[in-house]
């Protein structure tokens, strides 16, 4: 067992794509709670206490704003809360629906929190290079250029400061002008440099046939297990959704599908799908602390 961060990019992307789609589609309260809280706990595992701060400063306001905007602008519903001065009634149903859709959006944001921590740009490049190789090349080259240019910017601005034309001296217009001069110097250098890079790429055989890609990722047994578990759970959830187990209605009145043994089974599969990375991470940590007898301590996987 290895942590989700070290898994094969395909495993990562299957999980995140399915999780984002499920998190957006299923507004059934139970399913939404499952996806929201598992995303919340996984980001808690990855980031620690910082998640509480972003929850109260960003996610809760999104949910509240969504509930308020929807409550004030939509006029359906059967449970009136109060009447506005212009005679329109504010009902409970649009407020709840606004809150639920805000929670769904927050859930997707939390899933992307986890994405940003577990999937680095190498993995994005790996996945892109299979289908869009030239775009992936653009991405990876720019990723290398951006820090290089930032370093060059520092060099140029030091030199400009020596001439008394830094971005920290003078009034606002002076500063903007000096900043733009730095950008201009950088542009000339960057474009000339790119031509040189292209020539050296060409002389090393860029664009010739039968050239393979370097990749550091191995599809291990853990990946196979995780991927098959997630696939089975996804299929069960999709069948359940097709059979109407995720049915919920907020407009104009609240209606929800009945809880049956089958719906509990679907929810169980939904839980398993969402907590797979968390369990993999926790189990990996446990294995590091309590290694199997006879296992080589430094062994990966």
């Amino acid at each position: 067992m290895k942590s989700f961060e070290r898994c094969h990019p395909v495993t990562n992307f299957v999980y995140y794509i399915c999780a984002v789609i499920f998190g957006m589609i299923f507004l059934h309260p139970v399913f939404l709670c499952i996806s929201f809280f598992s995303a919340f706990f996984y980001s808690l595992k990855l980031y620690g206490g910082k998640v509480f701060k972003s929850f109260f400063c960003f996610l809760l306001p999104v949910m509240t704003a969504s509930a308020v905007i929807n409550g004030l602008t939509a006029h359906y519903g059967v449970t009136p809360l109060f009447f506005m001065p212009n005679g329109n009634s504010v009902c409970l149903e649009p407020v709840i629906y606004g809150f639920v859709s805000g929670a769904s959006a927050s859930c997707v944001i939390l899933i992307f929190f986890c994405y940003n921590k577990t999937v680095n740009s190498d993995k994005l490049y790996y996945v892109l290079s299979k289908s869009l190789p030239k775009t992936a090349l653009l991405l990876t080259m720019s990723l290398r250029f951006a820090p290089m240019y930032s370093k060059k910017i520092r060099e140029i601005s030091e030199a400009q400061k020596g001439l008394g034309k830094g971005t920290d001296s003078g009034g606002l217009s002076e500063r903007i002008k000096n900043g733009l001069r730095i950008l201009s110097v950088l542009t000339s250098w960057a474009l000339e440099n790119s031509v040189e890079t292209a020539d050296s790429m060409k002389s090393r055989g860029y664009g010739l046939k039968n050239r393979s890609h370097y990749s550091d990722y191995r599809f291990s047994r853990t990946d196979a297990v995780m991927l098959s578990v997630m696939t089975v759970c996804c299929i069960v959830v999709i069948i359940g959704a097709a059979k109407g187990e995720t049915y919920v209605l907020y407009n104009p009145f609240f209606e929800i599908s009945k809880i049956t043994p089958f719906s509990v089974f679907v929810m169980f599969n939904y839980v398993v799908f969402f907590v797979t990375p968390l369990i993999s991470d926790l189990f990996g940590e446990y294995r590091v602390k309590n290694p199997k007898k006879g296992a080589i301590p430094a062994q990966r996987a």
Partner: peptide
């Protein structure tokens, strides 16, 4: 993807993209 670009053009596009991203670093005071 389908277009047959010269390698110089591809790298120049990459340079423009990186410039656009790095241009934010120029104005770290503003």
């Amino acid at each position: 993807e389908k277009k047959k670009n010269a390698s110089r053009e591809t790298v120049a596009i990459a340079a423009v993209i990186a410039l656009a991203v790095a241009s934010r670093a120029v104005f770290y005071m503003l």
